[in-house]
C-alpha cells in the first residue's frame, strides 16, 4: 500500500478534474457519416503514440517468433510424441497469427515490415537487420541438434530449447517495459503483456512435460 497522503492527493486531483467536466452527453446533430469519419480518424490517430522502442520490439519479435515456427514445423517429421505435436501446432498457430498482427502494426505506422521466409531449418527475415542475437534465440548449432534428434530425444531437445526460446521472448518484453519511455501504444502494451502471460504459461507447461519425460526429476520447471 502506498501512503495515505498520496491517496488523498490523488483523489482530490481526480475530483477537480471530474468537476471540470468530462460528463457531457453527445451532440445529436452529428450524422452517421460524420461519426464514422471520427471513428476511422480516431483509430488512426491512436496509432501515432508509438515510440522507436516499440518499433524495435515489434520488428525484433517478428524474427523471434519466426524461429519458433521453424522449430515447431519439425515436430511432425521428427517423431515427436502426440503431446509435443499438439504443443508445437499451438505454438505455430499462435505465433504465426502474432507475426501477422505485428506486420500489420508496422505497416499501419508506415514502418518497414520484415518478411519471413522459411526453408527447412533455414530462416530468412527480409527487410530489416535480422539478428540471431536476441534473447533465447537458438544458435545454428542448437538448431542442428534439434533437427538431428528423433522421437523421445526430439521431445527432450524441443522442450528444452523452446523453454529457452520462450524465456527469451519474456526477457524482450521485460526489456521493453523497463525502457526510459514507457510504452503508451495500446496495441504494443496488449501484445507484450499477452506474450508475457501466454509464454510464461507455456513455459510452466513445458517444464511439466519435460519433467515427466526426463530421468532427471524436476529439472527445467519453474
Amino acid at each position: 500500500m502506498r501512503p495515505r497522503t498520496r491517496l488523498a492527493t490523488g483523489a482530490l486531483q481526480a475530483l477537480a478534474i471530474a468537476a471540470c467536466g468530462g460528463t457531457t452527453p453527445p451532440p445529436n446533430s452529428s450524422s452517421t457519416a460524420e461519426l464514422e469519419a471520427i471513428y476511422w480518424a480516431r483509430t488512426d490517430s491512436t496509432r501515432m503514440r508509438f515510440t522507436e522502442t516499440d518499433v524495435q520490439f515489434v520488428t525484433g519479435m517478428i524474427g523471434h517468433h519466426a524461429q519458433a515456427l521453424v522449430m515447431g514445423a519439425l515436430a511432425p517429421t521428427h517423431g515427436a510424441s502426440s503431446s509435443v505435436q499438439i504443443l508445437a501446432a499451438r505454438i505455430i498457430n499462435s505465433q504465426q497469427d502474432e507475426i501477422n498482427r505485428m506486420q500489420q502494426w508496422l505497416s499501419e505506422r508506415g514502418e518497414p515490415v520484415p518478411e519471413v521466409m522459411i526453408k527447412g531449418t533455414e530462416l530468412m527475415v527480409h527487410g530489416t537487420e535480422y539478428t540471431l542475437h536476441m534473447p533465447g534465440m537458438l544458435t545454428p548449432e542448437q538448431m542442428r541438434e534439434l533437427d538431428e534428434a528423433q522421437g523421445k530425444e526430439f521431445d527432450n531437445v524441443f522442450l528444452r530449447y523452446m523453454i529457452q526460446h520462450h524465456r527469451g521472448a519474456v526477457t524482450m518484453v521485460e526489456e521493453l517495459f523497463g525502457q526510459e519511455i514507457a510504452t503508451q501504444d495500446e496495441g504494443v502494451f496488449k501484445l507484450a503483456s499477452y506474450i508475457q502471460a501466454d509464454q510464461l504459461t507455456e513455459i510452466v507447461r513445458m517444464g511439466r512435460m519435460l519433467t515427466a519425460l526426463s530421468d532427471l526429476p524436476l529439472s527445467g520447471a519453474r
Binding site: 468530462g22 452527453p25 491512436t46
Partner: peptide, 8 residues
C-alpha cells in the same frame, strides 16, 4: 458517446 467513438 462521441468521446468514446474509436476507443475500445
Amino acid at each position: 458517446p462521441e468521446e468514446f467513438i474509436g476507443v475500445t
